[in-house]
């Protein structure tokens, strides 16, 4: 959950990212010290056709695949539209900005500061994780799809 002591930023590229670009971006961000939590956000790519006459049939999609960030594997189930970050302090934001300026060369992006993560557990969070849930993990993953957040460990 959001702790008011830590600033948050959001990276919004003007184009939605392909898995390969998202992988490069996330690996670049994983290399920056001082990022506490990171969330990727975008429209979903379901495994099955969710509605319409073909409902329930498989939905092959080339952008729904696993990517590797640091030592972790992330099964992408969305098209990456934006990356939300919680950082230790304001100096990290400038570092993120300088890295992103070098990264987004083919199309522009915006780096926005604000509050983008959940500030309190919702009813669904409560029903799913109970009263003693780890508050640092709430809001990082969709409570309904059963997949938790991924932990990226940095080499010491």
């Amino acid at each position: 959950m959001t702790n008011a002591a830590f600033p948050q930023v959001r990276i919004v590229p003007i184009r939605m990212l392909k898995p390969r670009t998202a992988e490069r971006l996330l690996n670049m961000l994983a290399g920056i010290a001082g990022i506490r939590r990171m969330m990727i956000h975008g429209p979903g790519l379901p495994k099955k056709v969710p509605y319409g006459p073909a409902r329930g049939s498989p939905n092959p999609h080339s952008d729904r695949r696993a990517i590797h960030v640091g030592d972790a594997e992330i099964a992408l189930s969305i098209q990456v539209g934006e990356v939300i970050l919680e950082v230790e302090d304001a100096s990290v934001i400038e570092e993120i900005r300088s890295h992103c300026d070098g990264f987004f060369v083919e199309f522009p992006y915006r780096l926005q500061e604000g509050r983008f993560m959940k500030t309190a557990p919702t009813l669904v969070d409560y029903a799913k994780y109970g009263p003693d849930a780890d508050t640092t993990l709430i809001g990082l993953a969709d409570p309904r799809n059963g997949e938790g957040p991924v932990v990226i460990r940095k080499e010491q």
Binding site: R15, L17, T21, P43, L45, P50, S62, Q79
Partner: peptide, 11 residues
């Protein structure tokens, strides 16, 4: 998307 295509959940 990066390649200029409109998003389609079903591709």
């Amino acid at each position: 998307a990066e390649d200029g295509m409109m998003f389609d959940m079903l591709q």
